[in-house]
Design a protein around this nucleic acid. Structure first.
Ligand code: MN
Ligand code: MN
Ligand code: ZN
Ligand code: ZN
Lengths: 140, 140
DNA sequence: ATCTATCGTGTAATAATTACAAAGTTGTAA
DNA sequence: TTACAACTTTGTAATTATTACACGATAGAT
């Protein structure tokens, strides 16, 4: 509600979108919870603070921010849509035990692909699944 | 209903799963339609031939085949689960104009990742979005 | 033929997402 | 300040995808 606000305000003003209280709160939540939350998580947590918040508003806000490129959708499981405020190219790793999702660096330019020479690539996604170090050591 | 049947029959026998008519038909469909169909597509098409087919059976069959590793789930959009009988490592490209999904070769071992040294990777997924050559030339 | 485990089907229940309309806000021009 | 248009939020209803469940059908083993 200061630096973040100003930064978002700025970025949105350029796109002629105004930063309402609800929108700010959703974006603030995503900034503070970079665990790739679902709509449900965002809504449930924010609703404690903003008792009048509607889940539809969360959907609306996220849809708008995704279409404006401020937020990215992460679909790893087919039954849960997650959101990431970090829109830089990076990979995701989902631990099948603890279900946590980890970020990792990846150089997409080095991803060698055959057969895509004539395609125009606009968006790249990489995700892995497996077991995280924590769960690996627990299982020993 | 011969070579395919025998091959699937074999593969499933090892896992103690029997190849019912419905299961055969779903697998046959996936083999002949490697366009990564949704449950809806599979059901709608097969239902013409097998009028008693239940959508639940399609779900059941796919779930079983996925858990046995004969079929792979492709989640590119958050609102549509697609299925692929090609379980070899390969990437997917979804054209945002015609919505078609294309396969492409990718050498996952060459995907350089930083920060995953201590993770056990069990499954790798790569998908891109953009515009396919056909739609690119149409738009000129 | 009988038994048992597995399979397929239909219906009902859940859950996620979207559509829509009403009410509230904001910015701005007169 | 007022007036107005554009944009937002909210709540409810509708849609859609998926799962749960129970019961009848089937296939293989004895
Ligand atoms: Mn991330
Ligand atoms: Mn494929
Ligand atoms: Zn873990
Ligand atoms: Zn296309």
């Amino acid at each position: 509600m200061n630096q973040l606000f100003d930064r978002l305000q700025n970025e949105l003003k350029k796109k002629n979108i105004n930063l309402s209280y609800q929108r700010l709160k959703v974006l603030e939540y995503l900034t503070q919870n970079q665990c790739h939350p679902t709509v449900e998580q965002i809504y449930t947590d924010l609703e404690k603070e903003i008792s009048t918040l509607s889940k539809t508003t969360v959907y609306n806000t996220l849809k708008k921010m995704v279409s404006e490129g401020l937020v990215r959708i992460i679909t790893i499981e087919d039954n849960e849509t997650r959101y990431d405020i970090n829109t830089h190219d990076h990979g995701h790793f989902k631990c099948e035990i603890c279900k946590n999702i980890f970020d990792f660096d990846i150089n997409m330019d080095l991803v060698l692909t055959k057969g895509l020479e004539r395609f125009k690539i606009l968006d790249r996604n990489v995700y892995f699944k497996g077991i995280c170090p924590g769960c690996l050591s627990n299982s020993k």
